[in-house]
Design a protein around this nucleic acid. Structure first.
Lengths: 345, 345
DNA sequence: CTGAAAGCGCTTACAG
DNA sequence: CTGAAAGCGCTTACAG
């Protein structure tokens, strides 16, 4: 009878009453002012969430059109991001959500004033934010959390703290599986050409690689482990460096398909045959793997599904529902194509 | 001294004073109530216009963040759209504009109620709309024109009427150049594997192809001209059909790089060598052309630049400025790579 | 940090 | 039809 959630739309005063504070205090919390005690803020946020409070602006934008979710991603010109975005937009069309992209880019993330940015998102009725392999700071996450804007990160860089939602794949297992595949073929001189050390996913792949080596009694060599960018140019640079070693690797595990593309390019220009002279495993399983010659053995991650999951997670959080798990991890799968073979003896 | 337009933002009371009525009356006019005398309504409307009154909602959406432009595009999973979108987002980051994508897709265009859609765009403060190779109806264009929402179309399908802004490339000249390149190599049995007949750009390429043949006294053969989709599967289907002819072509001009990918696929499975047994020219000049084996000779269009131009055009129109030209046409350029050679005698 | 009080801009209900 | 009065929901300024 005395149910908290009644059918009338919750208004600022309702929230204030439930939280046991005054209306101005609720107003301050909503607007991200910092002159509110943490304990009070938490109580108010709980009340906001419980009642599902919406500002007049949000009510308007909600009744006036589809929900809007912001997406921050670094360029669409990689097969990786293309797949993710395809999944996100796919889900957006089904859920009738608008995806907003373009203003804040990963490059602008640091320069941007998070407080202002988050505030503007609230004011324009944005439902949440998806970050793709972006750097984050605790301050950034705080800015959004304080305003109850859900943030979901896909393949986080530099995770600054616990307590945010993320989507990823079984990178450790994938790295291990790729490396074990090469070991089973008979390789022992296996290099890892990975992405930035700031990328959790790349580090996890590296550790999977190390675990596989260790599990087979192969000692790892520092010269065989290079970290760079997830792109083709780094694949080129890294491969040149590896092949210039006194004892070059007979197989390369690339941290992304784009890196693998660079490996193939160097192999071609040097007249090295893949897989006869050099075995190669990529990561991501993008459509690219079917278009290279030879077709690329790669650890596939379900990128489209990951994109869809990220958007769905944002929408669930925006509705005040809890996620089953703060970190959603999708299974990778080694797809063996034509770029791996036993080493020449 | 007694200027009507002062610097303070016009508020309901200001309008009321100017119109010589009370605030409630202005409120009624704004909200479309009918209990207002016609004469009064007209006076109030004049005052609203003169002061440039905006509701708090409109003010908020305008001042609260970057301008928003809607983008309707069919999937990002083609090299063509990826390049366009890269250009659009590139420009968006510079101009501080948000690009909204996801709700209305080309597939939804017909089903959607344009009037409602356009109205919602006005209400949520959208500055304009970019359509990419989308079908349009006159009714759709009217809905937006009536509300002063600029629409810019990239590579229009089914252009229903004059009087809209568009961005394209010199498709006729590009088609002619591609075909002449093949003729100069000695080919006379040249096929055109194009996109849908509804696509202006594909039809223009076809006419360039026909003009080149005609200019060199080569008669065109209906069996050598196929229209389909701008994608790889159609490249596969079309090539099979062409190669099954009693007198198959020795060269194929594909209406897009994606179609050309399908041609390469069929050639590979049939053991036909490109360019020795079959010459191939693509269209678009996407990064794909550097990744195929052999690298693909293609008519490049500056897709990124076209995307940037489309967004800039929308923003100019939104500011009330006129465009230099309703149709912006960018130059194509034939890039000769490794997929074309003289025919075997 | 908090909230009573005042204020803002718009809308509603109703007397004339 | 019109507008004084009351009201709504939120925010601001400031005293404690």
């Amino acid at each position: 009878m005395n149910q908290v959630s009644s059918k009338v739309k919750p208004v600022l005063a309702t929230v204030a009453a439930l939280a046991g504070v005054s209306a101005p205090t609720v107003s301050k919390v909503i607007n991200g002012r910092d002159d509110v005690a943490d304990a009070t803020r938490i109580r108010v946020q709980a009340a906001l969430a419980e009642l599902g409070y919406e500002s007049p602006m949000q009510r308007r934008t909600r009744s006036t059109g589809p929900a809007m979710v912001d997406l921050v991603i670094d360029g669409l010109n990689t097969p990786y991001s293309m797949e993710l975005v395809t999944g996100i937009l796919d889900c957006a069309a089904i859920e009738d959500v608008d995806v907003v992209v373009g203003n804040v880019t990963p490059a602008k993330l640091h320069r941007a004033n998070h407080e202002e940015w988050a505030q503007r998102m609230v004011e324009s009725g944005r439902k949440g934010l998806i970050l793709v392999t972006s750097e984050m700071t605790a301050a950034l996450l705080d800015s959004f959390e304080h305003r109850n804007i859900p943030v979901v990160v896909i393949d986080p860089l530099n995770p600054p703290r616990q307590g945010y939602s993320s989507v990823g794949a079984t990178n450790w297992a994938g790295g291990k599986e790729a490396t074990e595949h090469l070991i089973e073929l008979g390789h022992t001189r296996i290099a890892y050409l990975g992405g930035p050390n700031a990328a959790e996913c790349s580090v996890a792949r590296l550790h999977g690689y190390l675990a596989a080596l260790m599990g087979h009694g192969i000692s790892s060599r520092p010269a065989y482990i290079l970290a760079g960018e997830f792109n083709q140019p780094f694949g080129v640079v890294g491969t040149r460096q590896l092949l210039a070693l006194e004892e070059p690797p007979t197989a390369i595990f690339a941290g992304s398909d784009s890196i693998a593309l660079g490996v193939l390019e160097v192999a071609r220009t040097l007249g090295l045959r893949v897989p006869e002279d050099l075995s190669l495993v990529g990561f991501d399983g993008t459509p690219l793997t079917e278009q290279t010659l030879p077709r690329l053995t790669s650890v596939a991650q379900p990128l489209q599904e990951m994109g869809r999951a990220a958007l769905r997670a944002v929408l669930r959080l925006a509705k005040g529902e809890a996620l089953d798990s703060a970190h959603m991890e999708f299974a990778t799968e080694l797809i063996i194509r034509d770029s791996t073979a036993p080493p020449r003896v």
